[in-house]
Design a protein around this nucleic acid. Structure first.
Length: 376
RNA sequence: GCGGCUAUGGUGAAGUUGGUUAACACACUGGAUUGUGGCUCCAGCACCCCAGGGUUCGAGUCCCUGUAGUCGCC
């Protein structure tokens, strides 16, 4: 018995997309799903109670950030991240691989691991597959991620190949280092840039190592949509059908809908919470920047089709006012809305799959939302 | 009434011995944001320096008059 088991519940006769249930030590969640990101053991501005209320399932936390602060020893003393932050649903930790890519200019990637500087204070840091898994064991989330290298786009074939092969070796080392394989699942991550044979090979080798699930990494790093969807497609062709597939870092509406068509079961993204902090909202009629002057005296509901706490209780004019005055409550209300918006979108996705009309749903949803090519 | 001081965009204000595209900040208006450095980043925003006249090759910068504000005195 694995710590995390995946059960496919329906395959859409129209699209081939699937619904499933992810069974975790902290409860079952339906897929396809969107996972809110709580980097520092909190989804910024949203309480655990609010997360339950809006139907959140898996919540992410970040190995890199929790390692630096408060430190993995504190997580152990707390009895794991769920107890620490009082969120009792399933959780997943990213390995820190992406942070090495995104936060640090001064880094040196070697076979043993990655040396880099803490961009905040200049401290010398070193992260390796073993160390990442050790910290993730301390954090204690239901699902852990392999420590991988996320390469930029574009990358040469030679570099993408070299990096992908190293990511495979790191995946093996991380798997061997896992001290709690019966309590915490571990996912492998497919890399390989935008090269079909590399993605294909990487997936095949990861499957030989037999992970609990498989993720697709190295996307949303500056490539265009067509390239990204190709990368996803190439990555998952060799993946076992009955294992969960996780597309990392994707949260634009059109990307989520396309990912589901490609049999992706899980996605996570900072997008809804990050853009909320800057006043941008996703609604059923398209994107809104609530700070614009036109909303000053707009007393309508933010999104009449949304059932979130914000839309049930507050007007656009009030949200505009809170945003202009930089009140923290405004940030909370906008973050709640955007997060619920994507969770609800995925509820509708699952319903459409179960009713064998996912292609129709995707087409109509994109038409109604009038998002631009970015998809939000 | 007399004397001094000041007068630059929506706001606070830089503007060197008069010399080119009027600093900076805030506000404002757009935009960005995809495995999170929350309160960020990028861009735009004074056809003109209270009004009028003068000196000068050239004036926000010098001179005169007016106006407004401000302080002091009667």
């Amino acid at each position: 018995m694995r710590p995390v088991e995946f059960e496919i519940t329906h395959i859409c006769r129209q699209s081939g997309a699937r619904t499933g249930i992810l069974h975790t030590p902290h409860g079952d969640v339906e897929t396809p799903m969107f996972m809110p990101v709580g980097t520092q053991a909190t989804v910024k501005f949203i309480s655990p109670e609010e997360l339950y209320d809006m139907g959140a399932g898996v919540v992410l936390a970040n190995t890199y950030h929790l390692w630096l602060q408060p430190g993995e020893d504190i997580l152990v003393k707390a009895g794991g991240v769920q107890k620490f932050m009082n969120y009792h649903g399933p959780m997943l930790t990213d390995s820190g691989g992406f942070q090495v890519f995104s936060l640090s200019k001064l880094r040196k990637i070697e076979e043993e691991g990655v040396s880099f500087r803490n961009p905040r204070n200049g401290d010398k840091l070193f992260l390796s597959p073993e160390k990442s898994i050790h910290i993730q064991n301390c954090i204690g989330a239901d699902i852990m991620m392999s420590f991988d290298e996320c390469i930029p786009y574009p990358a040469t074939y030679e570099y993408a190949k070299k990096s992908m092969e190293r990511t495979l070796r790191w995946a093996k080392r991380g798997k061997d280092a896992n001290q709690r394989p019966d309590e915490q699942a571990l996912f492998g991550i497919v890399q390989g840039g935008d090269y079909e044979d590399l993605r294909d090979y990487c997936a095949e080798k990861l499957v030989e190592m037999d992970f609990d699930g498989y993720a697709i990494g190295g996307t949303s790093v500056g490539e265009d949509k067509t390239t990204m969807y190709r990368m996803v497609k190439w990555s998952q062709e060799k993946l076992p059908f009955d294992k969960p597939r996780y597309l990392m870092g994707v949260g634009a509406v059109n990307d989520l809908l396309e990912a589901v068509s490609l049999n992706i079961d899980m996605c996570d993204c900072v997008l809804p919470t990050r853009i909320a902090r800057h006043g941008t909202l996703m609604t059923s009629q398209g994107r809104i920047n609530i700070s614009r002057p036109q909303y000053r005296d707009d007393f309508a509901t933010l999104d009449p089709q949304c059932d979130c706490y914000t839309c049930r209780n507050y007007s656009r004019a009030y949200l505009h006012h809170l945003t202009r005055t930089k009140e923290g409550f405004g940030t909370r209300l906008l973050s709640i809305h955007n997060t619920r918006f994507l969770l609800k979108l995925m509820e509708e996705v699952r319903q459409a799959i179960k009713e064998d009309r996912y292609d129709d749903f995707k087409r109509e949803t994109l038409a109604n939302m009038k998002f631009d090519e970015r998809g939000f």
